[in-house]
Amino acid sequence: MANIEILGVPHAYELTAPMSSCPHTLVFIHGWLNSRGYWQPVISRLSTDLQCLSYDLRGFGESQSHAKTDFSQIPTSASLNSISNSVVGSTFDSLYTPAAYAQDLTVLLQQMNITSAWLIGHSLGGTIALWGAAQMPECVKGVICINAGGGIYLKEAFEQFRSAGQKFLQVRPRWLSQMPLIDLLFTRASVARPLERYWARQRVIDFVVADPEAALGTLLDSTTEEEINRLPQLVSQLKQPVYFLAGAEDKVMEPKYVRHLASFHRLFQYCGDNVIEIPECGHLAMLEQPDAVAEHIQAIVNSQQLTVNS
């Protein structure tokens, strides 16, 4: 594990060796209350052929700092000018919008001299990846969203989700991770089949250590009516290929909502060419079905590379 400072906050990351066979780096972005470690089952299958970068989002995992960043001093990427004002709007008004996290990612890739990347994001990380593609059109060659979709604001459902999330975050004493058998609750949450207890324990740890402000801020700022309604327009304006992997049994982000967002991209072509549904899979595809996820990622990147070279 290494650290790099981004806008005053130390960010933990792991980078595998570069591969001469592929010029791109796969950049893995985790979801809410998760950390970079959840990608390891997939990265272990891909890193023999592709360079892989995983990192902890600001305020999660090991990317934490008590110092607060002044985002008013962040230069907005020139590439943002290509997106209409109605899309950008007030995306940088908060520290915790997906666009603000994408700006962190922009700085990360610049500091690491990564000039050609595929962004792979899980859940909230998928939204961050879409914003990253908009902010870095020259660098980002494509996006793969995993268990991520949406673009439909259902007022009552989102109000319930936000309320439940806030209550969930209020019960996070440090000693929770030491409670006997507490991890058993996390083996079954949001998945089609129980996870190994190792991953359940990791979920408890990440839940407990997440910075309170970041945990609440990302929950609230990523689920506003404005933010949800902005997603389809964002996807429709992306020039890069965008693919979506959906868990057939995902109850958090149901396949129908994944398909809805995917349909705004040119690759959808009326029949969902850019959507891949993984059977017997819930909301944590990279842990539940790492072989399938890795195979799909490799196939997508390879096919796009062949398209570029042909």
Score class of each variant (00 low, 15 high):
49 D>L: 08
158 F>T: 05
300 I>Y: 10
77 S>I: 09
279 P>L: 02
65 S>I: 05
201 R>C: 08
281 C>F: 14
278 I>L: 05
137 P>V: 11
200 A>E: 04
108 L>W: 05
15 L>D: 15
290 P>N: 03
88 V>S: 11
36 R>A: 04
120 I>D: 06
83 I>Y: 13
166 Q>E: 14
293 V>Y: 11
134 A>H: 07
116 S>T: 11
104 D>T: 04
56 D>I: 09
91 T>I: 03
173 P>S: 03
111 Q>K: 06
240 Q>F: 08
161 F>P: 02
129 A>F: 09
111 Q>N: 08
88 V>Q: 12
33 L>N: 00
67 A>V: 06
125 G>A: 06
96 Y>V: 04
35 S>M: 01
234 L>S: 15
88 V>L: 11
300 I>M: 13
269 Q>R: 15
277 E>A: 04
17 A>I: 13
26 L>Y: 12
92 F>Q: 09
259 R>M: 10
66 H>S: 11
98 P>W: 07
76 T>D: 10
95 L>S: 12
106 T>V: 09
276 I>N: 10
85 N>H: 03
135 Q>N: 00
135 Q>V: 04
30 H>D: 01
37 G>Y: 04
266 R>E: 12
262 A>K: 12
32 W>I: 03
56 D>W: 03
110 Q>D: 15
62 E>N: 10
286 M>R: 03
251 K>V: 14
122 H>G: 04
233 Q>L: 12
101 Y>T: 03
207 F>E: 02
293 V>H: 05
234 L>N: 14
96 Y>D: 13
165 G>H: 04
40 Q>A: 08
216 L>T: 11
161 F>L: 03
297 I>P: 02
120 I>R: 06
266 R>S: 08
196 E>L: 02
276 I>H: 15
263 S>M: 07
211 D>H: 10
189 A>G: 08
59 G>K: 00
11 H>V: 15
296 H>I: 05
17 A>H: 10
101 Y>F: 15
128 I>Y: 13
80 L>I: 01
